[in-house]
């Protein structure tokens, strides 16, 4: 019996290692360029989040957010991530591109999104 359990555990470990390596291969930042502005999201960021953030970035006033009943009762289920926004050729001389670092909070249950500027710098890029 002990040998069987040891064998099973070895198989499980092998599977887990495979899962991690498959995931690791896929773990790379996501870059989206809209209207000349580049958005860099952390690896594994959902498409829904990307759409929500970019939409909110271009139309900050149009942020009608639906509040689910669960969030009304229990509060938001906040997920935090870092997003970088690069405005290329923002200056005429080097360094030309403006890089802004945002801390973004989103609720996994409803439309709530909140972004906070952490800092900005001009980088040599273009």
């Amino acid at each position: 019996m002990k040998k069987i359990i040891a064998f099973i555990m070895a198989v499980v470990l092998a599977f887990s290692a495979m899962s991690i390596s498959v995931y690791a291969e896929d773990a790379s930042e996501i870059s989206v360029t809209v209207n000349g502005i580049e958005f860099i999201f952390e690896a594994g960021t959902s498409e829904e989040f990307i759409d929500k953030f970019i939409g909110d970035y271009f139309n900050p006033e149009d942020n009608t957010q639906t509040y689910g009943i669960t969030c009304t009762l229990l509060g938001h289920d906040i997920e935090t991530s870092r997003t970088i926004v690069i405005t290329h050729n923002a200056r005429t001389s080097a360094p030309r591109c403006l890089k802004k670092y945002y801390n973004v909070e989103t609720c996994s249950r409803c439309d709530y999104t909140s972004k906070t500027l952490l800092g900005q710098e001009y980088i040599y890029c273009c």
Binding site: I5, I8, M9, F15, S16, M18, S19
Partner: peptide
């Protein structure tokens, strides 16, 4: 062990 195998397979 069986549950772990199932989870690992589903994960992969």
């Amino acid at each position: 062990a069986i549950m772990a195998i199932i989870m690992a397979i589903i994960g992969v």
